[in-house]
């Protein structure tokens, strides 16, 4: 067992532990933080596979952005544990069936992978760039599905904004753009008092 194997087993054990934590933690914030740990350790495993671009993007996107927003929501939840535990046994058969189905699917997929040829260990030249290779593939062979996914995401984004954007009447929020546009001349008028009591508004 060499150094790489040790690192792999450490990361793998950490991932499994974190995964267990996600589903067993009572507090949803702890569960979300366990999920962050799971993402980080699986990023480590991908790094071992020399997929450094994917590993870093996993950390950047999932840990750095998605989970932050997730935590945002979860932190503000008010959770009643007793109510959550209600009806556990009623839903148990359904949940167990779903879990069984997922196990079956995973065995099926991974089993099929085992038999097919993965190409073994590919030796890359020193200046091989994972990132460049991925970009080349995405923008040539898979450009159509890639663009399709991008359009779908854009659509989802626009839809999410359209669903949540609503104009309420009677709220006293300030319009920052209007505030920024204000010039001193609109608000302040400098008046100079003359000796004889008259005023000169032209004074600067």
């Amino acid at each position: 067992m060499n150094f790489m194997d040790v690192v792999f087993y450490v990361f793998a054990a950490l991932t499994v532990f974190a995964g267990m934590g996600v589903i067993t933690a009572r507090n949803p914030v702890n569960a979300a933080l366990f999920l962050v740990l799971a993402f980080c350790s699986s990023a480590g495993i991908w790094m071992l596979l020399e997929a450094e671009f994917l590993a870093i993007v996993l950390v950047l996107v999932y840990v750095g952005a998605v989970m932050v927003l997730f935590l945002f929501v979860v932190m503000m939840l008010d959770i009643n544990l007793v109510r959550l535990r209600e009806g556990f046994w009623r839903w148990f058969p359904f949940g167990a069936g779903l879990a069984g189905l997922m196990v079956f699917e995973m065995i099926y997929v991974l089993g099929a992978r085992q038999t097919s040829d993965t190409g073994g260990n590919v030796v890359h030249p020193a200046n091989y760039s994972n990132t460049k290779e991925l970009g080349r593939l995405l923008y040539t062979d898979y450009v159509y599905p890639f663009e399709l996914a991008a359009v779908l995401l854009l659509l989802a984004m626009v839809a999410a904004i359209a669903l949540t954007l609503r104009r309420r009447v009677g709220v006293k929020t300030q319009n920052v753009s209007d505030q920024v546009q204000v010039k001193a001349a609109d608000r302040v008028r400098i008046v100079k008092y003359m000796q004889d009591g008259s005023t000169d508004t032209s004074a600067k």
Binding site: E52, I56, V57, L60, G64, S129
Partner: peptide, 15 residues
């Protein structure tokens, strides 16, 4: 090679 991405990932962890 992906140094810039690494930096972005690390700074995003700071939060």
């Amino acid at each position: 090679n992906a140094g810039l991405l690494y930096i972005l990932a690390m700074t995003s962890l700071g939060v």
